[in-house]
Amino acid sequence: MTVMKQSNKLIIYILMLVITLLWGYAWVLMKDALTYMGPFTFSAFRFGTGAVTLLLVVWILRIGFPPRQYWKHLVVIGFLQTTVVFTLVMYALEFVDAGQSSVLLYSMPMWSSLLAVQFLGEKITPAKLTGLIVGIIGLFTIVGWDMWIGQSFEVIFGQLLIIIAAIAWAISNIYYRRHVSGLSQLQVSAMQMFFGSIGITLAALITEWGEPIVFNAASIYYVLFTGVLASALAFTAWFFIISKIDMVTATISTLLVPIFGLTFSSILLGEQMTIGVLTGSALIISGIVIATISKKG
């Protein structure tokens, strides 16, 4: 039994590492994709591709659609996690660096942890609370404690939009646990992404109709990678993770995403890796270690 539990934990940790790497790299592609098409158009292609991929998998595996009584909940999750989060984030990326954007979005664990205590009755152990605080301090160290000083209105506006997106993602995590955690993760991911992509497509049609779209090897790669791997695969794995372990542990692991995002942004986009970034990254890793090695997980 102990061996089985250890094996399950290892699978979850591997999944956490895989999805944080995918999401970290996706930030670079999301930023660069804006040179080929509008932010909402890219998101519509991305999540439309992800939804089609997952619906095909559901059909091939003959999993079937979830019962109708769950559909309203899946619409809510799709609206919060896909439509709201990624319309706000993609729009904000026009003003905010990819690395900094990823840092702000992954304030999500803080909001999720607070909501989990209030609505799921979870308890935060001293070790997890310490790890969360250390990780959040690391995030602000990366962004810079003076992030709103001397910034243009557009940049500050973009930063605030991403924080709102982080709160929307946190709410969707709690909503998932309360209403649909008993469903197949593939069903949830496919249906929420389908409903969410409808909202993004409407936003693209309303705001970006007639704007140029460039299809070439790079832009198609961006859509396929972010749609199939960073969306369809990663969000299915994410729903699996948050259905198996407590919300605090699951969400703290996502603090790795900004580290990977900043690293890939530095290598591929030439964004600067400062002492603050390195110090903040060390704090985030320390926070994750503190939170996950607690014996009372």
Rank of each mutant, 00 (worst) to 15 (best):
T2E: 14
M4E: 15
M4V: 09
N8V: 01
L15T: 12
L15M: 15
L22M: 15
Y25D: 02
W27N: 12
V28G: 00
L29K: 06
K31I: 01
L34W: 04
Y36T: 07
G38I: 00
F40V: 00
S43Q: 10
G50H: 04
W59C: 14
I60E: 07
G64I: 01
K72N: 04
V76H: 11
G78H: 05
T82Y: 10
L93M: 08
F95Y: 06
F95G: 11
F95T: 09
A116H: 04
Q118H: 02
F119Q: 10
E122I: 07
K123W: 00
T125N: 07
P126I: 02
P126R: 02
A127E: 12
A127H: 15
K128E: 15
L129I: 05
G131F: 14
D146L: 00
G150T: 00
S152N: 02
A165N: 02
I167C: 03
I171R: 04
N173C: 07
Y176M: 14
H179C: 04
V180F: 02
S184Q: 02
Q187Y: 03
A190E: 06
G196V: 13
L205V: 08
I206E: 00
I206R: 05
A218D: 10
F225W: 04
T226L: 06
S231H: 03
L233A: 08
T236G: 11
A237M: 12
S243E: 09
V248S: 08
L256V: 06
V257Q: 08
S266T: 08
G270K: 01
G276Y: 06
L278E: 07
T279Q: 15
S281C: 10
S281Y: 10
L283N: 04
L283T: 03
S286R: 13
I293S: 11
